[in-house]
Simulated assay, not measured.
Amino acid sequence: MFKKSIRTKIVAYTFSIMLIVSVLFSIISLYNLLTLRSFFINSSKNVFEAQANHYLEDEVKSYSKIIEANLTIKEKMCDSTVNFLLKAQDPKQYIPNIYTVMNKDLNIKGVAVLDKNFSVQYAYPADVKFDGAITRLKSHEYKKFSKNSYFVDFYLNKDKNAYFAFLFPFKDDSYILFEIDPIGIFSILQSAQIKPMSDKYLWMTDAKGVLVFDPKVKEHPLITLKDHVDLTNPENGEKLAYLMTNYILKGKTGTSYYTFRGVEKYVGYTSVPQAGWALGLTLPISSLLEGVGKLNQQINSKTILMLGIFSFFSVITILIALFFSMWASNRIVRPILDATNTINAIIMGDVSKRITYESNDELGELVKSVNNLMDALAQTLANLGDIAVNKENEDEQL
């Protein structure tokens, strides 16, 4: 009972302590590992978002400057043409040649001379109808573009195509109207879809927030002015409507996010000030998170590897704890068992046994004390034996 009890207790206590230390170390290491993993994932996501926001804002401002420069060039060339026609005795005879040149460079759809009531007096080509522009002009839906010109925002003609126009005062309270096909502007917008970030795309609205051009992407088909998708309408997204009404159409620049037709997107937004158009350079959040997801997979694989390493070392630690507890119990219990056996031998009358254990620790001192006790006891017994023999001799002599 003594042997089993002492050994069991020492093994149990030592093993328990080592196991607790091992478990605590594993838990702390696991916690730190998972915390570090979460930190890396969140940090990488924040970095991706910050870079995307910065990238989108800077690029959309660049597109705004390009489009504004394109508009300004068109207006300047139209202005130069009007100055030339003002000096001509018969301006109408020059308009066909002017149209041929300007159509090639500026995508001019047609040129018209209007009276003071905005009715067409002369048009070239003759088959071009300026009904959309005339309707806007008669409704006073135009604004000053420069000191010599007015700007007519996007409109649909009967051919269901979108155009915009520049209006210039001319002789005798008349006007000259240049109707422009926006194909050149749309080409600029489409250039935003060039790789390396082909998932991003650039959309544009008129000054009222109606989409004029939203390219065909995997999220939705091409959207143009004829579809009349009003981004200020909450039905197309409350966040987007708020953003359009309170920021973009007020000429502000920045980045945000919104949901359009069920797709969450980041957007860098700005405006084209002279025209009042709104620009949005959009990147679906799924595209951004794709990179984060790949990084997350790499972090997870590394985390699993580290967990495996921790588990391996935990098992090794437990085995070492078990071995150490067995070794410690043997080192502690063996001298005690020897001392017990020696004492039992004394009880049985054998005083010749000694404990073979040498150490400078407390157990070593105990063993020495027991051995010294045995030596002293053996000597005492020997002395008693001698006394008894001498006594017998004396009795015989008497």
Rank of each mutant, 00 (worst) to 15 (best):
F39G: 14
F39Q: 07
F40L: 14
F40R: 13
I41K: 15
N42C: 15
S43N: 05
S43I: 11
S43C: 14
S43A: 14
S44M: 04
S44A: 15
S44V: 15
K45W: 13
N46S: 12
N46C: 08
E49S: 01
A50E: 06
A50V: 06
H54Y: 07
Y55M: 11
L56F: 11
L56R: 02
E57L: 15
E57C: 10
D58K: 11
E59H: 11
V60K: 00
Y63A: 00
S64W: 01
S64F: 01
K65Q: 14
K65G: 06
I66H: 03
I67V: 01
E68V: 03
E68A: 02
A69E: 13
N70H: 07
N70M: 09
T72G: 05
I73R: 13
K74D: 13
E75D: 03
K76R: 08
M77V: 06
C78S: 13
C78M: 06
C78R: 00
C78Q: 03
C78E: 08
D79H: 06
V82K: 01
N83C: 04
L85T: 02
L85I: 02
L85W: 01
L86Y: 10
A88F: 03
A88T: 06
Q89H: 09
P91Q: 08
K92C: 06
Q93T: 12
Y94T: 07
I95L: 09
I95F: 11
I95G: 04
P96D: 10
N97S: 11
N97P: 11
N97R: 15
Y99F: 08
T100Q: 09
T100G: 12
V101P: 07
M102D: 08
M102N: 07
N103D: 11
K104V: 10
D105C: 15
N107F: 13
N107T: 11
N107P: 11
I108M: 08
K109I: 04
G110A: 12
V111R: 00
A112I: 03
V113C: 00
L114I: 02
D115W: 00
D115M: 00
N117V: 03
N117H: 07
S119I: 08
S119D: 10
V120K: 02
A123L: 07
A123H: 15
A123N: 05
P125H: 06
P125A: 04
A126C: 14
D127T: 07
V128L: 12
V128T: 15
F130M: 04
D131E: 13
A133Y: 01
A133H: 00
I134P: 01
R136I: 02
L137P: 00
S139W: 01
S139C: 02
S139R: 07
H140Y: 08
H140W: 08
E141C: 13
E141W: 05
Y142A: 00
Y142S: 01
Y142R: 02
K143R: 09
K144P: 04
F145A: 04
S146N: 14
N148C: 14
N148Q: 14
N148L: 09
S149I: 05
Y150W: 12
F151G: 14
F151H: 05
V152D: 02
V152Q: 01
D153W: 10
D153M: 05
D153Y: 15
F154T: 05
Y155M: 03
